[in-house]
């Protein structure tokens, strides 16, 4: 009897695995190929790319894009450092803030949880636009050219908050109640009981916050003027976009003369190189976070 059922389970496990492997592999390859194209593009010459488009193997191998990026290595290294420090600080603070808030909103015994959820969610629907935010940061708070202007905007995201809330709601209420009866305070329930149970959630939301900081160029564009303070993404964004925008200006006959040096700079391959430069460190760091949410759950089932 038992043997038979095991066999049956095995069969459908095999069926599922065939589907799962095929589907996952297909999507993974679809995701990988373009990235290979990006890497090979970054090592191609601008001219070859203009003539033949991008391909999976570098054409007319060239380092001109990387030479443009690393024209002044010290600036790039400083930008990397700025971004790293900002990402680490922001992720730590943001994760704390979001988990704490989500914990309250997920508590079924908190009487105003729906109200506060609405209070937070409402801000994702309506926005006053750029001007009032700019005035707030630069004039009211006086944060122009201040790292805080890069830290604050991404510290708290309602999207992450509500995701986190949904994860914490998966923790059985009975745990909270039992802890309460034992006389545990809310902070203890959060830090000693809830957090260890939601490690995958912490890893996920932490990853999202970290990525947001890592990829942010927009706030630097608005609030940071000192080249020394540029985070990596803005430094790179500025490099490629200023060349492009300038070329466009010339194309529209709006400016002329003194253009030779800009016109010969790469743009398409430069964009590819920038992607590689930005993504590299994340790919190296990714496995450390990944282990928290990429685990199998089949172990239990097979045992049965």
């Amino acid at each position: 009897m038992k043997r038979k059922s095991r066999l049956k389970i095995q069969k459908d496990v095999i069926a599922l695995n065939i589907i799962a492997y095929t589907f996952t592999a297909l999507i993974a390859i679809l995701c990988l190929l373009p990235f290979i194209m990006v890497i090979s593009g970054s090592f191609s010459s601008e001219r070859a790319v203009a003539a033949n488009g991008f391909s999976l193997i570098p054409q007319d191998f060239s380092l001109e894009a990387y030479k443009t990026v690393f024209k002044t290595p010290s600036v790039v290294i400083r930008a990397y450092a700025t971004t790293t420090v900002l990402t680490v600080t922001g992720t730590a603070l943001g994760l704390l803030l979001q988990t704490m808030t989500a914990f309250v909103l997920a508590r079924k015994d908190f009487p105003w949880r729906n109200g506060f959820s609405f209070f937070f969610y409402f801000t994702t629907l309506f926005s006053g636009g750029l001007v009032p935010t700019y005035v707030l940061y630069t004039r009211t708070l006086g944060l122009a050219n201040n790292y805080l202007a890069l830290l604050f905007p991404l510290l708290f995201s309602v999207f992450n908050l509500l995701i986190m809330k949904s994860y914490i709601m998966g923790v059985p209420d009975t745990l909270f109640e039992a802890a309460k009866i034992d006389g545990a305070g809310d902070f203890r329930i959060l830090f000693q009981i809830t957090l260890p149970l939601i490690k995958p959630a912490l890893a996920t939301v932490g990853l999202f916050i970290a990525l947001a900081y890592w990829n942010d160029w927009y706030n630097a564009m608005l609030y940071i003027r000192e080249e020394k303070m540029f985070p990596l993404q803005y430094f790179l964004y500025k490099q490629v976009n200023s060349i492009e925008a300038y070329k466009k200006m010339i194309a529209n006959n709006q400016v002329s003369g003194d253009v030779i040096s800009t016109l010969s700079l790469p743009t398409q391959t430069l964009k590819m190189a920038l992607t590689v430069v930005v993504t590299g460190p994340i790919i190296l760091a990714f496995p450390f976070v990944q282990k928290y949410f990429v685990q199998g759950v089949t172990i239990g089932a097979v045992k049965g």
Binding site: M100, F116, T123, F126, S127, G128, G129, P132, T133, L136
Partner: peptide, 20 residues
Amino acid sequence: MILPAVIYTIVFAYYPMTGV
């Protein structure tokens, strides 16, 4: 526990929201 997020939201979201 929720207070920091509330203050943050009022300052960084509701205050500029008046720009509508």
